[in-house]
Every structure is written in structure tokens, then in C-alpha cells.
Amino acid sequence: MKIGKSFIPISVVALMLAACNQSSSAEKEPTLLRLGHIQSESNAWHKGSLRFAELVNEKTEGSVKVEVYPSSTLGADRDLVEGMQIGSVDFALVAGVMSNFHEPYSILELPYLFEDLDHLEEFVYGEDGKRLQNETLEETGVRGLEFWLRGPRELTTNKLVESPEDLRGTKIRVPNIEASVEGWKAMGASPTPMNFGEVYSSLQTGVIDAQENPIEFTASARIHEVQDYLVMTDHVFGYVQLLMSEKTFEDLTESERGAVLEAAEEARMYQNEIVFSEEEAALQLMVDEGVEVIEVDQEPFRDAVQDVNERLADKYGRDLYDTIQSMRE
């Protein structure tokens, strides 16, 4: 039988196809995703973000790579959330500003809502915290992956503050959150909402007199260079969330999604382990560089905000507020 010139044995065709598949698989570019946050590279948020990126790379065997952009490179908090909604930002670390996108988060920003860190953990890592994340996803298109812990928020000032009466006339920077604005008004200050990236220069030039943040946050941004006092108010036991664009999540394969979720949980444990040891080091740094630490009786500050808390609980979520309060018992 005469064989035509175009004949190629089936076995040869199979080998050629296998080689092509291996080649295309080897040449496939990884999916590059971007994670933004407002903190400096020395902050625990950044270290946790880098660990998350490392874990995602490992768990997806390099098919997904996460690039981390600190120091508001991708925008301020609100910009990051809006970016996740449209898919231009893939991940972000965002705290209380989420209340501008899903109102019940305002409850978590009420001053003196949580008694201590254990109280906060009981909420965010329980069923109520998961329910809040699910509601946020439905309303905003932004997926809450994990809550990361932070140290309590403390006040820094350029004048001695020992009671709410000492706050009169003090221009204090606060995040653009109603609970923060109204809470500090009730404590006697003149709150000024402002992006965090503007705080250092505004303190330096006298546009504001004070600000409030966790110690490690304050120290890593070198805020203590332009503030004299650290006032231990412990007025908010807060969190930051590792968030993800649902558009990005849906574009991943099932195995990649699982890898991202696993990486998020492990990165949360890593960040939570280092954040408080770093806070101790940050406090020592601030003291060594001249900041005076003021211990205050917190009860007058707590009493000053109770009417605000009750009013905002009715506005943003009485059920959530009462649930958190019941955990005190």
C-alpha cells in the first residue's frame, strides 16, 4: 500500500500535542494581583501583607502572585475600597472607613464599645463577625477575608491632656467616620476628618494639634516627631480587614480561591503574633525619642461618649450594638 506524503502516525501526533501542551503550560504567565494599604513598610500591616503574598505564591505554585503597595501608593482607604468594587485593586487592608460603604461598621468604631482585646476577638472571630462580612459582600462587592488585630487607639497631642476638659479647643485629626467625629466632639475636642497621609505635615504646620491611632501605627509614621504627649485613652479596640475584590475572586480558579483563603488565614495568625510585640518596641522608641506618656482615668472619657453611642446605635444597628454589649456579661 502506498502511503501519502501527508501521513503522520497517530503516536507522533500525540507526542506533538503533549509537547505543545507542556510548552503552553510552561509559558503561561502568572496572574498578578495588587494589594494596597496606607501604612509604611516598617508597619506590621506591611509585614503581614508580604507574608500573605508569599503564602499565595507558595499555595498556588506560582500561578498567582501578589504585589504589595504600601504608604497609600494605590490611594487612601476610600480609594482602595472603590478600586476593589470596580476591580482595579485586588486586595486592600482597610479599617473603619468601611463604615462609609456598609453602615453597620460604624458600630465597631464607637469609642469604648469594646471592653478590651478579648472582647473584640470574641466578636470578630465569632459568627457575628462572619455575618457582618457576608452582608458587606452582598452590599458592596468586596469580600472580607480576615480580621487582623491592632493595638488600642491612643491620643497624641502637643499639650497636656488628663481629662475631657483639657481637650477643649484641640483640633484633632480623625478618620472620616461619624462615630469618630461625634465621639471626639462629645469628649470636648474639635475633630477634623483627614486622610492619614496628610497628618504629619498638618501637625507640623499647626493645621491640627492632635491625632489618635494605635501606638505602632503612630510610631511607624514618625508622628511622634511632631507630638509631645502620648495619652493612654484606649478609646477604641480596633481591627483592620484584609479585603478582596469579588470580581478578582471570581476570576480565579477554584483551587486558586482555596489557596487565597488559606493564605489569608495564615497571614492573619502571623500578623496577630507580631503586632503587639512591635507595639511594645514602638512605645519604647517613642519614649526614647522624647514623648511623654500620660496615664489617665478613662472613666470620664467613657462617660462623655455614652449618649453619642446610644444615638448612633439606633442609627446604624441597635441589634449589633446590643449583641456586642451582651458579650460583656
Rank of each mutant, 00 (worst) to 15 (best):
V56F: 09
D319G: 02
D166R: 04
L80V: 05
A282V: 06
E278F: 04
A219Y: 03
S24L: 15
V207S: 12
D166Y: 03
Q271F: 05
L117K: 10
M187K: 04
A219F: 05
T136R: 01
V64R: 07
E122R: 13
E122C: 04
E182K: 14
L242P: 01
I86D: 15
K28T: 15
E246S: 11
D209H: 13
E109Y: 04
P30T: 09
E67R: 11
R51D: 11
V66W: 09
Q325W: 13
E265H: 09
S49M: 02
S40I: 00
G238T: 12
L132Q: 10
H46W: 06
N213Y: 15
L15E: 11
H37D: 04
E198M: 13
M286S: 00
P152H: 00
P175W: 00
E292F: 04
A186Y: 10
E295W: 06
I10H: 06
I3C: 07
K2F: 14
V291F: 01
L117S: 07
E122D: 14
P9N: 10
I3D: 03
V81C: 04
A264E: 01
S88G: 02
L113D: 06
K28E: 15
Y69T: 03
L74E: 04
G36R: 02
F217I: 00
K59S: 05
Q325C: 09
L283F: 03
F196R: 13
A281I: 12
G96N: 07
R168F: 09
T253G: 12
A186K: 11
N21G: 09
V199Q: 11
C20Q: 10
V287T: 13
G62T: 02
E121H: 03
T136Y: 08
N213G: 07
P104T: 12
E256M: 12
E115G: 05
L113K: 08
I215H: 07
T192L: 14
S11E: 15
R257L: 08
G36E: 03
G206D: 12
E182W: 08
E138A: 12
I8G: 00
Q271N: 13
M244T: 02
Y229D: 05
L283P: 03
E280M: 12
S326T: 08
V260D: 05
V94Y: 04
E115W: 08
N272C: 00
T73F: 01
I8M: 10
E246Y: 14
A14W: 10
M232A: 07
A263L: 11
M286G: 05
F52P: 05
G169C: 12
D228N: 14
E27I: 06
L285N: 11
E54F: 02
G36M: 02
Q39W: 13
V97G: 07
V305N: 05
S106A: 15
A92Q: 06
I274S: 09
F101I: 01
E250Y: 00
E266C: 09
N176Q: 12
Q325N: 15
A267C: 02
C20K: 06
S72K: 03
F91L: 09
Y112F: 15
Y125C: 11
V308G: 03
D116C: 06
V142H: 00
Y125Q: 08
D166P: 06
V174K: 07
G96W: 13
D209M: 11
T233N: 10
S71P: 01
